[in-house]
Write a protein that binds this DNA or RNA. Sequence first.
DNA 1: ACTCTTGTTGTCTCT
DNA 2: GAGAGACAACAAGAG
Length: 519
Amino acid sequence: MSKTSIIWFRKGLRLHDNPALLEAARGADHLCPIFILDPWFLKPDKIGVNRIQFLLESLADLDASFRARGSRLLVLRGQPQEVLPRLFKDWGATHLCFESDTEPYAKTRDAAVRQAAEEAGVEVHSPVSHTLYDPELLLSRSGGKPPLTMQSFTKLVTAVGPPPEPAADPPGKLPPLAPKAAKEAARDGGAAVAVPLLADLGYPPAGTTPFKGGETAALARMADYLSDKAWVCAFEKPKGNPAAFVRPATTVLSPYLKFGCLSPRLFHAKLLQIYAEVSGKHTQPPVSLRGQLLWREFFTLCGYAVPNFNRMEGNPLCKQIPWVDDPERLRAWEESQTGYPWIDAIMAQLRQQGWMHHLARHSVACFLTRGDLWCSWEAGQAVFDKYLVDGDWSVNAANWQWLSASAFFSQYFRVYSPITFGKQYDKNGDYIRHFLPVLKDMPAKYIYEPWTAPLSVQQEAGCVVGEHYPEPIVEHQAAMKENMARMKAAYAAAKEGGGAATPAPPSSGSAAAKRARKK
DNA sequence: ACTCTTGTTGTCTCT
DNA sequence: GAGAGACAACAAGAG
């Protein structure tokens, strides 16, 4: 009996540590590597050009790797639930392999695809390789409820034991496409299944991020950062400099992990190797480099186990807080028009590069929500999701809840100052000068608070507040004080109500969701 | 049931 | 310039 496999890429855009690919290729006569451009993910108003560019670069790199092995990647369009059943039939597929994905949209999509495969007599394999651990395993080992602190999460993974070793590399030669697939690929000179251009998808011709997508870039970047073993062992996330932009203070491997250009298990194994090699001490989770992988793991587990994790309502973990919908404030924040240079520079870096340091994200997230503007964290989450090249559904939702003191973190009286926080790291304001050129000639003394500069100084710097750059959108001290009182009231109301949240509507029927809902 | 400790990453003032 | 305490005071998890 002949075996014709489809290896369906979604995340996991790599050849290394790819158990789904290995399973698809094993003993196969034909192997059809595909990626389906799902209109769900291609909305220019919701998902920015930088992340799509990163995706297309990753697909091009993947295609090149397949071509080097006598195959190629076919990029198709449409809803996977509709495209795949056609392929089962047209290509005579016997096997479908794809990496497991625990996000809600993916779960629904994959369940439908799985059912269609079953009806078509196609065997499905869906191994875990996006995370170190299988979230379902972690959840069952923690009694059906996810841990709510990093400490208890770390304890959990320690008890579970080391994650699986990375899978073997694929063979240097892979099975050819199924004949019908090859024929489809050759049609119109191959244009129909080639990696498209941004413009083909309704995007501008090019993005502005300096980060290049793909497995090749991912492995090179990892090698670069891991080559400094002393740096790896001394890594302490909270001590990083959020204003560093020539060489960021962290690895910027997050976009590669998001798309699966880099295997977390490979990265993890390399870290353990370095820790073992280097005599002497190395930092520990949560602050260590390994700890950063565990954060991702922790938040992915929460996203898997907690219903409505990306929303306030119906999210049993999330404190219910009466945020005010204020489109003007939100727009000012998104477009670097708050009048606070530190905040506006960070948001400019976000729009330009699709990445900023973790602490910079803290600053702007706190500012938008409980710190200054009192806008909903969900609105901030959507803006981050639009611009970040590393935008990850679970991690984004978790961090916004953290920073808005809606879940995980509750010391709402600790508020980041939009003036002094950045100053600690960058007294001269080089970061602001770089990302907000309008302020490039403002003296260091005033660059974090340009409205305090004498008019003559503003004129000299070519930046008059109210003319070339906005007045502060709120007075920080007053806004903070008012918001703290609101937080106090919201917390008290939550206690009064006998819990942190309203009951969850039955939106998910999965066993995991049911378990998580149980109090 | 209860207390106590701790929590990746605050700010301001005073010494 | 580093360190300590005030600010006003949360909640999960350990014991």
